[in-house]
């Protein structure tokens, strides 16, 4: 009986691992492709270990396009992503505090508006937003890619509100008795206690912004401003034959920040996604 149980456990782990391996195979294949020559990639072999190890893909890829190296593209992405993420985190926490803790006139209305924007498909407002930025003369700047993120993102506001429900109101009361104003309560109590939710927000927003393709595609038109995602696409667009090795090399590099953050904050991410959906 005991051995049978052991065997079934072993089979379970083998199955889950094998299946999981299939799931991540395309990613591994891409990373291995960054060490293969173009001919080998185009042959489409399943092998993860390159037949002829090519180490130059990274250096040729890094050279970039028309004299602009990938250093610029990575810096651009890092700049946009970090500022927008910071903005999302702060503004969403402010708004969540107002909507969940303060009883002000019109709260119900603004809450409904927030839920509505969560459901609103971005594509519907894509064109008119573009036209507004165009009128303001701000296309081909970073403003359209950053400023809206300082106005709170509905998805995260909602998530933070759910989290704030779990912070006991007695803490607010106690602080009030000690002479803390509602501003102080946010700064000294709510915001520090919000940490897990803030970390989730930062991670998810970081991913979304780092991977964002449509925003930069619409608003950036000078190569010097390009983000990594736009630059990688240039490999495929180039008039001459695509350098797949270099493309995969830069693609792999572009995933490093994503993986790093995932490894460090894994626990928060899983918990955050879980709870945001549960109470939704």
């Amino acid at each position: 009986m005991k051995t049978r149980k052991h065997i079934s456990t072993l089979l379970y782990h083998l199955f889950v691992l094998a299946f999981g391996f299939c799931m991540v195979y395309p990613v591994l294949w891409m990373i291995s492709g960054s060490f293969k020559g173009n001919a080998e990639i185009l042959r489409g072999g399943l092998n993860l270990i390159p037949k002829d190890f090519v180490g130059t893909n990274y250096s040729t890829g890094w050279r970039g396009f028309s004299g602009i190296s990938f250093k610029t593209f990575f810096m651009n992405s890092a700049f946009i992503t970090s500022i927008a993420t910071l903005g999302t985190m702060l503004s969403s926490a402010f708004v969540a505090y107002a909507l969940s803790r303060i009883k002000f006139k019109g709260r119900g209305l603004w809450f409904s508006c927030m839920i509505a924007t969560m459901m609103l498909p971005g594509q519907v407002i894509m064109i008119p937003s573009y036209l507004i930025w165009y009128r303001l003369g701000l296309t081909s700047t970073y403003v359209p890619l950053i400023l809206p993120y300082f106005c709170g993102q509905a998805f995260f506001i909602y998530q933070m509100m759910q989290f704030m429900k779990g912070i006991p109101r007695e803490l607010d009361e106690a602080a009030r008795i000690d002479g803390c104003s509602k501003y102080g309560i946010f700064g000294r109590i709510i915001f520090p206690l919000l940490k897990p939710s803030i970390i989730t927000t930062v991670i998810i927003q970081f991913y979304w912004k780092w991977d964002d393709y449509m925003g930069p595609l619409l608003y950036l038109n000078r190569p010097k401003q390009y983000t990594v995602s736009i630059a990688i696409k240039l490999f495929a667009d180039s008039a001459s034959t695509t350098d797949y090795g270099a493309m995969f090399a830069m693609s792999s590099l572009s995933l490093i920040p994503v993986f790093l953050i995932f490894l460090i904050f894994n626990r928060y991410l899983v918990e955050g996604i879980g709870t945001s959906g549960l109470k939704g």
Partner: peptide
């Protein structure tokens, strides 16, 4: 006032 100050970004 507090409510609108905090909700202003949104």
């Amino acid at each position: 006032t507090v409510g609108y100050v905090f909700a202003l970004p949104f």
